[in-house]
Design a protein around this nucleic acid. Structure first.
Length: 683
RNA sequence: GGAAAGGUAGCUCAGCUGGUUAGAGCACGGCACUCAUAAUGCCGGGGUCGAGGGUUCGAUUCCCUCCCUUUCCA
């Protein structure tokens, strides 16, 4: 009996480019969807652009366009990136759509009718110059607890205290740089606490991951509080029915975007919306998300659905974040890789494969190690998998291009085919890494088989043509099983291999029957090796900033939940006040010594004289200053009050300033004019 | 501050409910082969399983403490 399954991955937010953190989620989802389809299930996959909220509004203003223009432009880029990574959405919609507005209003009115909505007055920061209320993250000031300057309105990054923006000392609007005033405004709240029992019950099946359950238990213990779902004009979003000037908070209508997108798909294909999303639907509904938005998907979302009389998700699948070369993605480290940058350099499938070798069902962070990426792809895909087809194809072609009428080693084939159940279970459980380990183990055995039977040696004896063909028929059949197992991960390669073998890889159980007496075509390379030099271009050369601690910032998620534009800083950051600049202790320093760092091809170790003291600094300028001796005696500008940073090679006590492009390898040290003395302050 | 996950060979990772000499891939060394995109096969070197206690006949695997990394906190 085919299952009917509706799957989503998280909606990308319309204020920035997709990066590889978005892509790993899309790949995880897409592999699962493709696998389910191969199983013969009806598996639909929808997604949408998440369009609303203050960050989009502000960003559109900054770019001199309307929000509608901005979201159209960004969505087009996102769609193109997803397609580049072979993500097979059945439909990609927008939360700023008539479908989404209709469903949002419907759910809201249902919640209201059932008494799940309440209102109360909220005191909030208001920017008189900009004429708008300020989300907490748009107010900055001194922490009331530890007195660290320049902290957001909701919590201090230094001491971790949480508070409301009115507690900040000398608060400032990040939009106009003026001091906000405090105004009362009526807000609409969703009474989440009323759903505590419903949620506890739902989570038994909906939250299947231990890590997620532990987190949810914490939230339950703390008690579920009302959720503010309204925002005041001006706001880019949907106006709340019967509440002029009040808009739905972006996080209220964003998950509803899943439903809106599916509605649009139904309209397109004539599907029955209620069969999937009606109150008593028997179909399965799964959301793939990152761990940062677990709260919204495991609490608010099922509660809103339940309260408005809709079905709840079958389960929510949570994954961890992506790191690059062991560190979080960040522009200052050069490890922030956008989807489009990747695609401009490399094909999608190697990365899909690499992600698959690492993905499992746990909420663990996953590292994209570039060296490992190259080794893994070149060895596993080209050296092992493709090699099986490549080394057998020539003999088959010379033997007439037709496979033999039987397998010389049916038991071996049987072993390969018998694993389809186990491997299928692993895919279904999202344990792709284990699935691929199993598959690659089989690839080794296939190569061993060919090595043992040496068709090239047999081919020297003209009388043994049939034997050669038999061995290679075995090899090709083993390859076919492996390719079938990998088809969810490598759809393009499966397509090409299908043309080579005159078959389709559409059905998971097709490997039950081996190919006999079957014509195959000339072999063409199915995959090419990755060039480490090209892969290295994914990350920017390490700049001196790499030696500096970066502010805590979420690498893989747009924190729209807090109304903050968490996209990594643009090339040209926004304005800062003079106080921001004054926090930096910039000093003139003389290079006393400069040397290569053993074990690093990027760093130089500098000993700097600050007049009153000496500092040890690791700086990523080796590519531009290959002869460190020439630096000795030179004067440079350094940040003297940078948090010391422990590195593999020692502690770096500051950083030297350099000029560079975002995308170029050149680095140019800054120097003061003649006459400056070590220790002089730069202002 | 509260909480979670992780720390296993140079690198990336497996190791289920404690039990013979701790595994894989890559990298490295040697040999073989030459069909294959310098691919493949065989053999080998390499780990006091973060540190210290404890439970046990026996712990990488259980308990406690500590250190380090990462992450989450409406």
């Amino acid at each position: 009996m085919p299952r009917k399954i509706l799957v989503t991955s998280a909606l990308p937010y319309a204020n920035g480019a997709l990066h590889l953190g978005h892509i790993i989620e899309a790949v995880q989802t897409d592999i699962w969807v493709r696998f389910q389809r191969m199983q013969g299930h009806d598996c639909l996959y929808v997604c949408a652009e998440d369009c609303h909220g203050t960050p989009v509004m502000i960003k559109a203003q900054a770019e001199g366009m309307t929000p509608e223009e901005l979201i159209r432009k960004v969505a087009a880029e996102h769609v193109s990136d997803y397609q580049g990574f072979l993500i097979g959405h059945d439909h990609f919609h927008s939360t700023h759509s008539p479908e989404n507005q209709a469903i949002t209003e419907k759910l809201y009115l249902a919640l209201k009718a059932k008494g799940h909505i309440t209102t109360r007055s909220v005191r909030q920061a208001y920017d008189e110059q900009a004429g708008m209320f300020l989300p907490d993250r748009y107010v900055k000031g001194e922490c009331p607890v530890c007195h660290t300057a320049d902290q957001y309105g909701d919590s201090c990054e230094n001491c971790g205290s949480t508070y409301t923006p009115d507690k900040l000392i000398n608060p400032q609007s990040t939009i106009s740089q003026t001091a906000p005033v405090w105004r009362e405004s009526e807000h609409y709240f969703f009474k989440l606490g009323e759903f505590t029992d419903v949620l506890r019950t739902w989570l038994e099946g909906g939250a299947r991951q231990a890590e997620v359950r532990a987190k949810l238990a914490e939230w339950f213990d703390a008690g579920l509080q009302d959720w503010d779902i309204s925002r005041d004009a001006p706001y880019f979003g949907f106006e709340i029915p019967g509440a002029p000037g009040k808009y739905f908070y972006v996080w209220f209508d964003a998950p509803i975007g899943y439903l809106g997108s599916f509605q649009a798909l139904c309209d397109k294909r004539g599907l029955d919306y209620d069969e999937y999303l009606g109150a008593d639907s028997k179909t399965e509904l799964y959301h793939f998300i990152g761990k940062d938005i677990s709260y919204f998907h495991n609490l608010f979302w099922p509660a809103v659905l339940h309260g408005s009389g809709c079905r709840k998700p079958t389960a929510v699948f949570v994954h961890g974040f992506l790191t690059v070369n062991g560190v979080k993605m960040s522009k200052t480290r050069g490890t922030f890789i956008t989807a489009s940058k990747y695609l401009s350099l490399l094909p999608a499938e190697p990365l899909r494969f690499y992600f698959a070798t690492k993905l499992n069902s746990a909420v663990e962070d996953i590292d994209l190690s570039l060296d490992d990426f190259v080794a893994r792809v070149n060895s596993d895909i080209v050296g092992k998998l493709v090699n099986i087809a490549s080394r057998c194809a020539g003999f088959v072609a010379r033997g007439g291009g037709r496979l033999a009428t039987q397998l010389p080693d049916p038991k071996l084939y049987e072993e390969f085919a018998a694993l389809r159940g186990t491997i299928g279970e692993l895919y279904d459980a999202r344990d792709y890494s284990a699935a691929l380990r199993g598959i690659m183990g089989l690839a080794d055995r296939a190569n061993q088989y060919v090595d043992t039977h040496k068709p090239w040696a047999l081919a020297k004896d003209p009388a043994k043509g049939a034997e050669v063909l038999a061995v290679c028929t075995q090899g090709i059949n083993l390859f076919r099983v492996l390719m079938s197992y990998l088809a969810p991960v490598l759809p393009q390669m499966a397509e090409k291999a299908g043309k080579f073998l005159n078959i389709s890889f559409a059905a998971w159980n097709s490997v039950d029957t081996p190919l006999f007496d079957h014509p195959i075509n000339a072999y063409e390379p199915l995959a090419t090796r990755l060039d480490p030099k090209v892969v290295a271009q994914l990350v920017d050369p390490v700049t001196p900033a790499a030696a500096a601690p970066v502010p805590r910032k979420n690498a893989t998620s747009e924190k729209k939940g807090k109304d903050v534009n968490a996209t990594a800083p643009a090339t040209t950051p926004g304005n800062v006040g003079i106080n921001d600049f004054a926090r930096l202790d910039l000093r003139v320093a003389t290079v006393l010594d400069a040397a290569f760092v053993e074990g690093s091809d990027k760093l130089l170790q500098l000993t700097l004289d600050l007049g009153t003291e000496q500092r040890n600094v690791f700086s990523g300028i080796r590519s531009a200053y290959g002869d460190p001796a020439k630096l000795i005696g030179r004067q440079v500008v350094m940040i003297a009050n940078l948090e010391p940073r422990k590195m593999r090679f020692g502690v770096s006590q500051g950083m030297v300033l350099c000029a560079s492009r975002d995308d170029g390898p050149e680095v140019f040290l800054l120097s003061p004019d003649a006459g400056a003395q070590p220790g002089m302050k730069v202002t």
